[in-house]
Design a protein around this nucleic acid. Sequence first.
DNA 1: TTGTATGCGTTATCAG
DNA 2: CTGATAACGCATACAA
Lengths: 345, 345
Amino acid sequence: MKRKITLKHIARELDVSISTVSKALKNSEEIGQDTKEKIQAFAKLYNYRPNNIAISLKNKRTKNIGVIIPDIVHHFFTTVFRGIEQYANNKGYNVIVCVSDESFDKEVINMEMLANGSIDGFIMALAGETQLKNDFNHLKEVTEQGIPLVLFDRVTEDVQCDKVIINDEEAAYQAVKKLIASGRRKIALVTTEGYLNVSAKRAEGYFRALKEHHLPIDKDMILELPYQKDNEKKSEEFFRNRSIDAVLCVNEIFAVKCMGIVQRSGKRVPDDIAFIGFTDGILSRLSTPTLSSVDQHGELMGETAARMLIEKIERDHDQEEEEIFQTRIISATLVERESTLGSLK
Amino acid sequence: MKRKITLKHIARELDVSISTVSKALKNSEEIGQDTKEKIQAFAKLYNYRPNNIAISLKNKRTKNIGVIIPDIVHHFFTTVFRGIEQYANNKGYNVIVCVSDESFDKEVINMEMLANGSIDGFIMALAGETQLKNDFNHLKEVTEQGIPLVLFDRVTEDVQCDKVIINDEEAAYQAVKKLIASGRRKIALVTTEGYLNVSAKRAEGYFRALKEHHLPIDKDMILELPYQKDNEKKSEEFFRNRSIDAVLCVNEIFAVKCMGIVQRSGKRVPDDIAFIGFTDGILSRLSTPTLSSVDQHGELMGETAARMLIEKIERDHDQEEEEIFQTRIISATLVERESTLGSLK
DNA sequence: TTGTATGCGTTATCAG
DNA sequence: CTGATAACGCATACAA
């Protein structure tokens, strides 16, 4: 077992000082040609690599960024993560991921753990519980310490930092308009229980489109589903007892589940009912029929967040100018597939 | 902006030495009660937290583990990652993820980056390219340096280390037996192009079941699909020109795609053709019909890998006993759903 | 009971 | 051209 070699080993072996070795390996002009060559050759032979931890301690920069997301199995977050990871890696940063599991406590613990020197900045989407509690002190503490923070998707106005979101309201509005244009009039909304934040904005877009076309807004046409658990019965009951010709769902899972229920009850998609979901993932592409879906461009979102964060990290050290926080809005786009094909009647 | 406070700050402020502060905060018996209280109160007031980096440098342990996977958007890897993250976090470890993107070069670069002190051990699944190249020097270097390594799912016999895999051959065998027991005789296999390793083992199980029941093994009944790209035409052609009454697919994406193709061509699942896939993910649960699928227990796999790794990390430092490497085999289980309901004829 | 010195691996400054 | 020294933040063996 050949342990990692350090500057000290090289110095001792070659009978020079540590600082000479350090400089020689950086190809410093100060060092004589022959000494440099000798040292570089030795270093290469023993495959010397500087120790990241020591460099971090010295530079007070870790080249790590911390990502805290509510759930890694969720396709949207996975996609965002991919965007982050790719961009960050290109820039020489590594990514430490923590999953909050929608729990406030875990989010706090994870943040504190990472904030003590492990990372140069955070990218995160708030846990559901955090949004409910409306307690953002852990975020504020971090920013007050001067650690850059970028929020994406699940954001809050209570914290001053960079943000990346999509135009949820507008995207939902456009989706519903599309449904109306194809002759649908009885349009239901399937959303999350106690729908917050993102879901709420999508609901607003839904309402706006209905209003604009003088269609009635009926709370009875809104189905609220628990976030992670199954609730087939509630959904079945909903569709059984209502006359519905189109549905907007706040995610693709709800959409695909509801399409299944509706089809099993003998109705046809899109002939009898059209469906549009959010999150254009693998489910949308592979369901039968394929699902029209709002693409949230997760990868772009992640890349954008990473770019904003790294800019801030690398600027931070230069000058202490007035902090400017930006909110980037990414335009969602509707991907039309079979579930909205053709007009009604 | 209140910067992070250090032992030195506290020492200066309270006019004591750094080591006194250090000991006081560890509640050492050496320090006088009153000094301890004074120091602890001050530390709490200013929310002192030890710097992770400094501790890492001192202890030569980072409490980070590195995970390198080919793809984070793939459901199976995501699930494994979740198992790793949960277990590691419980044990006080953070997880740094790098995505190799199936590329040999990226895998090497990522490993080298992390191996220079950033992590205490690796968990990884080999990139497709790495398996093709059969070049594992980067893995060997790491293990030679004494960095613990656990491989999962995509493993190789060329590297001496801990491994976690599932009984792919047996699972495929059982799946095909089940198909045969329900009266199916013309059973196709859909696998990855140049099917390696995992896919190869599943193919072996498929062959074994056929042989055991004296069914013909026909290369023409095997469809090879590119890993990530679409190839609808090839699949359509395959199913159009063959008489098939059951299909085993090496992943759920292939299965769902093929079910779609078959259904669009007018055949019925499972009445005319039964389907079984691997990777029991969201697609299997939400496709129409729902897909019978081999559950690889990704989360358990991740947890197991993390447990093995952390055990090794924490033992490593004790004694220099003879290294023992284990291979844990996780039993896959077939989850039966609509796509295999009932017998043929 | 408290403080000093040393080291973890590296870099930067300054002296020789 | 080369080397000694200090510093990053912390822990600890050893003095006082």
